[in-house]
């Protein structure tokens, strides 16, 4: 039984269930604080109320870190991280977190035009999840996940599913379909093109 609560700085002490996962990034404290300060309403968690507090303090089953950015038509919310503890996966918690973000930012004071996120091109499971939630590929960001060793991409002609990201978007009604491209996968851009 999941409840949605605001994320607090002290929750960082109780995230092991989620963040020990090998694919989940652990950011420096300053990064989490930046999100708490700039977008306090867009950083939230799911809490499992039925977890026995006498056994574990780790009752956070997932969390959403998001922000708003851009100007004019590009004003949107961006999902920086959405992650769920392994034992609570495949229960639609990620969907609940994404839907909640949508509900929060589709109204005042945010009123965004669309929501976007980046996902590795080879992460078929995640892409499928986001498609189910109404997201579609808007463009392919070549070399988004490049390491320092890989260097900055020099051309848009070379693709690598393990290094490239799909910029997936879901438009709100006020966006009037501007964030939807039926041929989004064919549109390519450099990482510097995605700065807002």
């Amino acid at each position: 039984m999941s409840t949605l609560d605001p994320f607090e700085a002290t929750d960082l002490f109780n995230l092991d269930n989620v963040n020990l996962d090998v694919l989940t990034e652990n950011f420096p404290v300053e990064f989490y604080f930046e999100y708490l300060i700039l977008w306090p309403g867009l950083f939230f968690k799911t809490v499992e109320q039925t977890v026995d507090a006498s056994i574990t303090t780790n009752n956070i089953s997932g969390y959403m870190m998001a922000k708003t950015e851009g100007h004019g038509n590009d004003w949107h919310s961006h999902i920086t991280a959405v992650t769920v503890a392994p034992e609570f996966r495949r229960l639609f918690l990620a969907s609940i977190l994404c839907n909640t973000l949508e509900k929060i930012t589709d109204v005042l004071p945010h009123n965004v035009n669309f929501i976007d996120l980046f996902v590795k091109c080879d992460n078929a499971l995640a892409i499928k999840l986001y498609e189910k939630l109404g997201y579609s590929v808007f463009r392919r960001v070549v070399g988004y996940y490049n390491t320092a060793g890989d260097g900055y991409p020099e051309t848009l002609k070379k693709c690598n599913d393990d290094k490239d990201a799909f910029d997936m978007r879901k438009g709100m009604i006020r966006d009037k379909g501007k964030s939807i491209r039926s041929d989004g996968r064919k549109h390519r851009c450099f990482p510097h093109d995605i700065k807002f």
Partner: peptide, 20 residues
């Protein structure tokens, strides 16, 4: 960061940050 959260009016997060 706590000081900035006062200035940026992220009031709801300050108690948690102080505690942290």
């Amino acid at each position: 960061f706590i000081k900035i959260s006062f200035e940026r009016e992220a009031y709801s997060k300050i108690m948690g940050m102080l505690d942290f």
